[in-house]
Simulated assay, not measured.
Amino acid sequence: MKSNFTTVTMGLIAAAFATGAVAQEKVRVAFVPQIQGIPYYVAMEQGATKAADALGVEYIQQGPTSTNSADQLRIFESFVNQGVNVVGVSPVDVETLKPAIAKARAAGIHVITSDADAAGSEREFYVAQALDQDLGYTILDEMVERTSEDAKIAIISDAPTIASLNAWIAAIQDRAKTRYPKLQIVSVDHTDGTAARAFQFATDAMTRNPDLKGIIGIASTTCPGIGQAVEAAGRQEQIVATGFCSPNTVKDYVLSGAMSYSVLWNPADLGYLTVWAGKQLADGKPFEAEPKVDGLEANVRWMADEKILLLGEPAVFTKENIEQFNF
Rank of each mutant, 00 (worst) to 15 (best):
1 M>P: 15
1 M>T: 14
4 N>D: 14
6 T>K: 08
6 T>W: 12
7 T>M: 15
10 M>C: 11
15 A>K: 09
15 A>N: 06
19 T>C: 14
20 G>R: 10
24 Q>A: 13
27 V>A: 07
30 A>P: 12
34 Q>K: 13
39 P>Q: 13
47 G>N: 12
55 L>K: 13
57 V>P: 10
66 S>A: 14
69 S>W: 08
71 D>Y: 06
81 N>Q: 15
84 V>L: 10
95 E>I: 09
97 L>D: 11
109 I>M: 15
125 F>P: 10
129 Q>K: 13
143 M>R: 00
144 V>I: 15
145 E>H: 03
150 D>A: 11
153 I>G: 04
156 I>M: 00
164 S>I: 15
166 N>T: 10
168 W>D: 06
171 A>Q: 01
173 Q>W: 02
178 T>M: 07
189 D>P: 02
190 H>L: 01
194 T>G: 05
195 A>L: 01
197 R>A: 05
199 F>Q: 12
200 Q>N: 10
204 D>I: 00
204 D>R: 02
213 K>H: 04
219 A>H: 04
220 S>E: 07
230 V>T: 06
241 A>F: 00
256 S>C: 05
259 M>H: 01
264 L>M: 10
268 A>K: 09
274 T>V: 11
275 V>F: 09
277 A>E: 07
280 Q>R: 11
281 L>V: 04
287 F>H: 07
288 E>Q: 11
295 G>E: 03
302 W>H: 09
303 M>A: 04
311 L>C: 11
311 L>P: 08
312 G>R: 04
312 G>C: 05
312 G>A: 03
313 E>I: 02
323 E>K: 00
